[in-house]
Amino acid sequence: MKTLSGTLSIMQNLEMRYQANFSGVHEQDLITQDLLHKLELEQNNAVQLVQLAKQLKECRQTRRMMKDEIELMQPLMDFMQDGQNKRCVRQLQEALGKMRDVSKHHENRRYYPRVL
C-alpha cells in the first residue's frame, strides 16, 4: 500500500513540478527581455554592464536548468496524459482509497460475543 501511495504521489508531484518549470521558463524569458531592454535603452557604466551581464547569465542558466528538467519529464508526462493511462492512474487512486478503507476497517475491528 505504501509503494502504491508513493508511486501516485510521485506522479502528482511530477505534474506540479512540470507545470512550475513550464511557468518558470516563461518567467525567465520575460526577465531576459527586461535585461536586454536595459542594455539596449539605458545608459550604463562599466560596473552596471558587468552586473547586467551577470544577471543575464544567471537567468539563462536557470532557464536552461528548467528546460532540461522539462525534457527529462516529457516522456512520463506524455504517458500520463494518454487517455488510457489517465484512466489507469485514476483506477489506481480508487484502488488505493479502497485499500485504505479496508485497512481502517481492520484497525477498528471488534468482536462482540454472542453467547458469553
Rank of each mutant, 00 (worst) to 15 (best):
L30C: 13
V47Y: 09
E40F: 08
D68H: 08
Q74S: 07
V25C: 11
R60H: 12
G6L: 01
K38P: 02
T32Q: 03
N108V: 01
M1W: 15
L96N: 01
E69A: 15
Q19C: 04
Q81P: 00
K2F: 10
L52S: 02
L96K: 12
A95Q: 15
E42Q: 14
G6Y: 07
A20F: 14
N44D: 10
F79V: 08
Q81H: 12
Q84C: 11
L8N: 05
L72R: 06
T3S: 01
M65W: 09
C88D: 13
G24Y: 14
E58T: 06
V25I: 15
S23Q: 07
V115E: 00
S103G: 04
R114G: 00
L76D: 03
L30I: 00
Q93S: 07
M65I: 06
G83M: 15
L39G: 01
R90V: 13
Q48G: 03
I70L: 14
A46Y: 03
I31Q: 10
E27I: 02
C88T: 11
Q61L: 12
R114F: 05
V47Q: 09
M11T: 01
E94P: 02
D82I: 13
F79H: 04
Q84V: 15
K104A: 15
M65N: 06
P113H: 07
I31W: 06
N13M: 10
R110T: 02
L35N: 02
K104Y: 15
L30P: 07
V50S: 08
V102E: 12
R64N: 06
Q61V: 07
Q74E: 02
C88P: 01
P113N: 10
N45E: 14
V89N: 04
R87I: 14
Y111N: 14
Y18M: 05
Q74P: 05
N45I: 03
D78Q: 10
Q81A: 14
K86P: 00
E40P: 00
T32L: 05
G24P: 03
V102F: 10
D34L: 14
K2Y: 15
H37E: 13
R100S: 09
D68M: 13
D82E: 12
Q28L: 11
Q43N: 11
R100W: 15
N85C: 08
A95G: 07
L35Q: 05
M80A: 04
R109T: 08
Q61N: 04
G83Q: 14
N45M: 10
L39M: 15
L8V: 06
V115F: 11
E27L: 11
T32C: 08
P75Q: 08
L52N: 03
L92T: 04
I31G: 03
E15I: 06
R100T: 03
L116Q: 02
D68I: 13
R60T: 10
K98E: 15
L52F: 04
D101N: 06
L41N: 09
Q91V: 04
G97A: 14
Y18Q: 01
E71A: 11
P113A: 14
R64G: 05
K104V: 13
K57V: 10
L39D: 04
I31V: 09
P75A: 06
Y18P: 02
T62E: 10
D78P: 00
F79D: 07
P113M: 07
V50P: 00
S23N: 09
L35K: 08
N85G: 02
V50N: 05
V102L: 10
L4N: 08
D78V: 10
V115P: 00
L39Q: 09
S23F: 11
A53K: 14
G6I: 05
Q51D: 11
E58P: 00
S9M: 04
L56N: 06
H26R: 12
